[in-house]
Simulated scan of single mutants.
Amino acid sequence: MKVLIMSDSHGLTQEIGMITDRHKHEVAAMIHCGDSELERKDPLMKDFLAVRGNCDYDAAYPNDVVENIAGKRFFLTHGHLYNIKMTLMNVAYKSEEMGADIICFGHSHAAGSEMIDGKLFINPGSIRQPRGRIEKTYAILELEKDQLEITYYDLEGKIVDELRNTYQFE
């Protein structure tokens, strides 16, 4: 099963539509980790599990979401309420409270993934203003039993090889 993850699109609409159209037939779920700057009722956001970022003003977005997908418990947040630009410790504690296996967040605009204490942390980067890379990125997580493969893509749909990782749940 595959899950599309994006964040920090900051008002982009054509790009969200393009990415959705490109992958909607291959993914079982789509996640937006905040700062879409679109209203929750915007048609582009209707198929996304989405959270509120520091630049989102529509209170219809929750700050956090916990969702079971493919037998794994996902914790979704933007990250600004957990100071993720400085440390993952706060969001790690919150995800522990929530019983999460996979933590998806944005805010820093820095693409990357990391397994810490048996939990997978994923930041898909930004499709508008990346930091630390030139590519504007989003990610697709493939879950197969206890193996997880994360693949990052640029806006054109080209794989960003150096960000690709495979993880095992213990």
Results as ranks from 00 to 15, higher is better:
M1N: 14
V3G: 01
S7R: 11
G11P: 13
T13C: 08
Q14P: 04
M18S: 14
I19G: 09
T20E: 10
T20W: 07
D21A: 04
V27H: 10
A28G: 15
M30T: 08
H32L: 02
S36E: 04
E37Q: 10
E39F: 02
P43G: 06
R52W: 00
G53M: 07
D56F: 05
D58G: 08
D64S: 04
D64K: 08
V65L: 12
R73T: 15
R73H: 03
F74I: 14
F74G: 11
L81M: 13
Y82K: 12
Y82A: 08
K85V: 14
M86C: 05
E96V: 13
E97F: 03
M98A: 15
G99W: 05
A100I: 01
D101E: 09
I102L: 10
I103A: 09
C104P: 05
G106Y: 10
A110K: 15
A110W: 10
A111W: 12
G112Y: 10
I116P: 05
D117E: 15
F121W: 06
I122S: 00
I127R: 01
P130S: 09
R133N: 03
I134N: 06
E135Q: 11
K136A: 08
K136Y: 06
T137C: 01
A139P: 00
I140T: 02
L141E: 02
L141A: 00
E142P: 02
K145G: 03
D146L: 02
I150G: 00
Y152I: 01
Y153P: 00
K158S: 09
N165Q: 08
F169M: 12
